[in-house]
């Protein structure tokens, strides 16, 4: 039972990691590429880390929770680095794909 859950978590995690990288590779412009790694990769690695925490908690009969630390760290830092990279990209006026609605440079509001 435990092994099945572990195997599922590992496969799901690896799959999402791959999806993040596929997004990084095939999406057309930088701002869209930003979405793949920040979301999919973070969740994928998080799932693998949870699997690892479960594995080492049940295997030798002692609790191993320090994987939680890496998971929390990744979930806090991924949006921060994404924000900074987007800010840097806007600062050097990187081109976005043409069909994007609005541009960040002339700050015309939503609606």
């Amino acid at each position: 039972m435990l092994e099945t859950i572990l195997a599922l978590l590992i496969i799901i995690g690896a799959f999402f990691t791959l999806v993040g990288s596929i997004g990084l590779y095939k999406l057309p412009d930088f701002y869209m590429r930003l979405h793949g790694p920040t979301k999919a990769t973070t969740l994928g690695v998080g799932a693998i880390l949870v699997a690892s925490a479960l594995y080492f908690s049940f295997k030798p009969g002692e609790i191993s929770l320090h994987e939680i630390l890496v998971t929390v760290f990744l979930f806090i830092t991924a949006p921060v680095s994404a924000h900074l990279m987007a800010k840097a990209a806007i600062h050097i006026k990187l081109k976005q794909i043409e069909r994007t609605k609005n541009t960040p440079y002339q700050a015309d509001n939503n609606s």
Partner: peptide, 28 residues
């Protein structure tokens, strides 16, 4: 462009974390 490369580097870091954790699981 440069931001693309930074983003790719960031993703490489996170992927290598996944690989290391998987190796830890594999070797127990």
């Amino acid at each position: 462009d440069l931001p693309d490369r930074i983003l790719a580097l960031d993703t490489l870091y996170i992927n290598s974390i996944a690989l290391l954790i998987l190796l830890g699981l594999y070797l127990g």
